[in-house]
Write a protein that binds this DNA or RNA. Structure first.
Lengths: 257, 257
DNA sequence: CTATTTATAGTCGTACTGACCATTAAGGGA
DNA sequence: TCCCTTAATGGTCAGTACGACTATAAATAG
């Protein structure tokens, strides 16, 4: 911070990029926009935009989240700073430093074309083609972060609507991790963690028609999971197959995919 | 990323700030510089500086680390991006977005006055007065991050010299967490984790004169701790008393201390 | 009515952990 | 020299957590 007058500094453009996840149709989906201009015209990219002069990056991220999803109230959603990407050549047009955020949505609406998004859509995380800029890497980092936070926080309820069954909560874990979990054991663990979920007395939901009705739960007030709910060491292969996260090294520097 | 021509954007200055920790004299110490000009003249601040036009934030952080510590080779040191701080008013002079990094050093030298640091010094983490800008918050976030990563990674060896005893390794945990740990249990846990440490055959070190000589160990090649080594729920009070982390909310937005 | 599906309840053995106790090997002081 | 202190090391034991598994209940599909 010393030496404002000793070092010349170059102005940077500062943007936010959003990796917005949801669990729908039994799979993990990501909100993406299709680029309508060069560079990377026709490629999918993460939604995002410039940080305005009077707002913080977090404020900008929440504003963009509202614009891109079309949701009128995004104040209750989970939004978390992921990492900042600053490779000098990550945007061929100019020097852009981007602060990436991750958001989790329960049961999202189809995105409207509002904001500056040409055409925003929910796409399955698996089998995504190459994204624009370094967004492959950002998305992989975001996926890894979300998967890790499911282990030791109560974050999974952020993917669920206000009332949910334990089966739906388990599907969140299975979808993000790409692994199958033992249902009785999962249930035992969740219920043994105070404040993770609380049962709604007398309520039950028919599970898509078949099977015994499941009790409904609300998110509790706990935020941490002690002890954590660790994902199995090796993924025992689940129906919606999951590509293993390509970023084994979480360091954000050193490469621009 | 769409709409470069629709939104006007204001240029930002982009800097890096470093929270550099070491364990010395039985306490946690931080590398700080004393500000020689307004604002916050006379206050202590985290070392840092501008990101240069042709470098990434990570490159800038490593360059600043070498300049401020006076170390000739910082390539092997642990350096990790922490968070980006972007409150519009965090620097009264201009709009500065700062990418914060955390570094861990074993047995560091006294900092020379090189680089642009007026006077850099190692200060005890406990009992620090208010720092310049929002550096109190950055430092608290860094401390919390380091403490958390000790739980589920093998990061603790980054605080230790190439050869160390298990007692020294335990002191790292106790110093960062501010809690006392049971020595036999700690030993059992560390040795039961494959690749955490490996014994140097036949080597032993006299522990400051008194007591049985301790075996020497090297850092292993493992990076993760499965299962994790969780810190005790409540801190059972250790000699170097530790101020509980003032940032219970890890979100980096919303306030500028 | 029967098979199927899903939720829920419980069992059992292993692994891990926290709280201890015991032994070994060094130095310091009377 | 003998004994005490200090620190490393080795071990026990019980409680908890967890993975694998079996069993029962309550709904629908045919």
């Amino acid at each position: 911070m010393e030496g404002y007058d000793k070092y010349a500094f170059e102005p940077f453009a500062v943007t936010v990029d959003l990796a917005v996840f949801t669990v729908r149709a039994g799979g993990l989906q990501v909100l993406l926009i299709e680029r309508g201009q060069e560079p990377y015209i026709g490629h999918w990219a993460l939604p995002g935009g410039f940080v305005l002069p009077q707002e913080s990056a977090g404020t900008a991220a929440r504003r963009e989240l509202a614009e891109e999803t079309g949701l009128s109230d995004v104040s209750g959603l989970h939004l978390e700073q992921l990492c900042t990407y600053s490779e000098p050549d990550r945007d061929p047009r100019m020097r852009v430093v981007s602060v990436a955020y991750t958001a989790l949505l329960p049961d999202p609406p189809e995105p409207r074309g509002g904001g500056d998004a040409a055409s925003a859509r929910w796409l399955a995380y698996d089998g995504l083609g190459p994204l624009a800029f370094d967004h492959d890497r950002i998305l992989a980092d975001a996926h890894e972060r979300v998967g890790a936070k499911l282990e030791y926080t109560c974050l999974a309820t952020a993917f669920c609507p206000p009332e949910f069954t334990l089966g739906e909560l388990q599907q969140v874990y299975e979808t993000v991790w790409g692994t199958a979990l033992d249902r009785p054991n999962f249930r035992r663990k969740v219920l043994a963690t105070p404040g993770f979920v609380e049962q709604i007395p007398g309520a039950a939901r028919l599970t898509g028609g078949r099977g015994k009705p499941a009790a409904l739960y609300r998110a509790g007030d706990a935020t941490a999971l002690h002890p954590p709910l660790l994902r199995p060491a090796s993924a025992p292969a689940r129906p919606p197959s999951q590509s293993p996260s390509p970023s084994s090294n979480p360091s954000p520097e050193g490469r621009s995919s």
